[in-house]
């Protein structure tokens, strides 16, 4: 608790932290508001070509809301915000050289790493809890008694979302410790998430790989694939294959192994490095 309270002393008065957190929830809210509109625009488009039109999708009822909102909250452009916070909080210690001061004052190097991991964990937990409360509220407003009885069916998506947050923030933690430079770390991390990895996927797919495997095992994709699709009955009907209806342990295991390896590398290098 001592390490966490030191971190809170550093973070809570930090304006940039609140601005990015604010931006994140703003984007998240916009995403949630827009989600239904976007999905139904797609349905309308499809309906033009269908003899029997599909019904409009409703996203915010139990138990589908868990899957729908965690899906929209974990798309790349939204996920990147908390990662940027983690990168800034860690690289700040290097650019302000406060990491040196911490070590000199009697923090061990392992404690320093551990304190940042605690920040990662708390941030992932808090965001998950807030999102969960939003889903709970929206779900209760939109659901009838029948769907209320199924309320907890999709709860694995909340746990899946937490794993997504936690592992993705661990990737950010890794990049921050390795690069130490705020601008460089944010630029490379964003670039990798939004451009480089999708390009790798594109290059690796046809004609080399026909199945979806490699895509899933690339680090950021493995995170995003934990909640692979939103749960939209119309879509299920339209597409001729089984959509996921729960978070699987295997899907969580892949990014968790990545995260564990990255934390291990940080421990090994940071303990040997000159500061």
């Amino acid at each position: 608790m001592k390490l966490l309270s030191i971190e809170l002393k550093k973070i809570l008065p930090y304006k940039t932290f609140w601005i990015i957190i604010g931006l994140y929830f703003l984007f998240l809210a916009l995403g949630i508001i827009m989600a239904e509109y976007i999905v139904n625009a797609m349905v309308d488009d499809v309906n033009k070509r269908l003899p029997i039109p599909l019904p409009h999708a409703v996203l915010f009822y139990f138990p589908d809301i868990w899957q729908n909102l965690t899906f929209f909250a974990s798309i790349r452009f939204v996920l990147i915000f908390p990662a940027i916070i983690v990168i800034i909080l860690i690289t700040n210690e290097f650019t302000n050289k406060t990491v040196r001061q911490n070590i000199v004052n009697g923090m061990s190097r392992s404690e320093f790493i551990y304190s940042k991991l605690q920040v990662v964990f708390m941030l992932a937990l808090i965001i998950t809890v807030i999102l969960m409360l939003v889903m709970l509220t929206l779900g209760l407003i939109h659901s009838d008694s029948q769907s209320l009885s199924l309320m907890l069916n999709g709860f694995s998506f909340v746990i899946g979302f937490f794993i997504q947050m936690l592992t993705y923030l661990c990737f950010a933690f890794f990049v921050a410790f390795m690069l130490r430079n705020t601008g460089l770390a944010i630029a490379l991390f964003t670039l990798y998430t939004i451009i480089i990895e999708p390009v790798i996927y594109f290059l690796l797919r046809a004609p080399f790989i026909w199945e979806n495997t490699v895509y899933t095992y690339l680090p950021v994709n493995s995170v995003i694939r934990i909640v692979e699709y939103p749960s939209i009955p119309a879509l299920k009907k339209l597409m001729n294959f089984q959509l996921q209806d729960q978070v699987t342990l295997l899907a969580c295991a892949v990014p968790m192994i990545y995260a564990a390896v990255m934390i291990g590398i940080v421990y090994l290098t940071f303990n040997k490095r000159d500061l």
Binding site: I6, K10, P13, N92, N96, T98, R100
Partner: peptide, 23 residues
């Protein structure tokens, strides 16, 4: 050590509170 290393957005007092906590 060489240059004074503190959090620029924190006051002197808050910075010293962090030092005290570490120690």
């Amino acid at each position: 050590i060489e240059t004074p290393n503190f959090f620029p957005y924190l006051s002197a007092r808050k910075n010293l509170e962090i030092v005290a906590k570490v120690k």
